[in-house]
Design a protein around this nucleic acid. Structure first.
Lengths: 115, 115
DNA sequence: AGGACGTTCAACCATCGGGTTAAGTGACAC
DNA sequence: GTGTCACTTAACCCGATGGTTGAACGTCCT
């Protein structure tokens, strides 16, 4: 429970949140994670390192490919911490619908379209 | 919903999380918020500004004293975002017990005692 | 009016974070 | 072995962040 610093600062970056949302659909190789972004592969590698150190994803090398897998446990810890600040009823969107919401594709009309 | 950047980066700092936990018990004046910390009042003022900009608290000037009040709505937004990554059942600790947990005073024995 | 109190602002410093490019490593293909 | 592919590391740049001190501002007291 003492990695809230790591967890929250990892989540503070929109690129990293988007990566997590991508991994929600399936495990991915580093190169494939990098594909939708306009930044260098090295930058993505750093982002993945940060997410990994925060426990938000795990990386497993298979041959020369490194597979990235979402690890929701740290998110769960952070979520528990948050729930101390109000009785937030669970929303129960299914993961894919939630992914869309995080993209701003559904939800309040004023929302921006990044993340 | 598009201030997740602000919300998460505000939450990434242990001083600020502790401030939020303090405000969970009651509204406080800036000076009183600063009291338990070893850093300058100006630094606390900056932290409060960051929390305020993130929508995590509101500040109301009454006379010469500025009252700080917890605003859980942004936490709620962030919590909703998180719940897309797993079916996290709500934990339903009451707020004070949760505050203790965030202090490391209850919970897993290996936990550190900061935040 | 003058002074003390509560808070913020301004200037500065050191460290961190996200980005770059270029070089390095390790596994597969020929 | 040579080359290519999939990454990671190293060195660097620059803007953001967390801290400081000292001055400024607005409010209350006498």
């Amino acid at each position: 429970m003492r990695d809230l610093d790591l967890t929250f600062s990892a989540l503070a970056d929109p690129t990293r949140r988007k990566i997590l949302a991508m991994l929600l659909e399936d495990d991915m190789a580093v190169t494939d994670v990098a594909a939708p972004f306009d930044i260098s592969l090295a930058a993505i590698s750093k982002h993945l390192g940060i997410l990994s150190r925060a426990g938000l994803l795990s990386q497993e090398r298979r041959g020369r490919v490194v597979w990235c897998k979402l690890e929701p446990q740290s998110l769960r810890d952070a979520s528990i911490w948050m729930q101390g600040f109000g009785q937030f009823e669970p929303v129960n969107l299914d993961p894919f619908e939630q992914f869309l919401a995080s993209e701003g594709l559904i939800g309040a009309p004023g929302d921006a379209i990044d993340d």
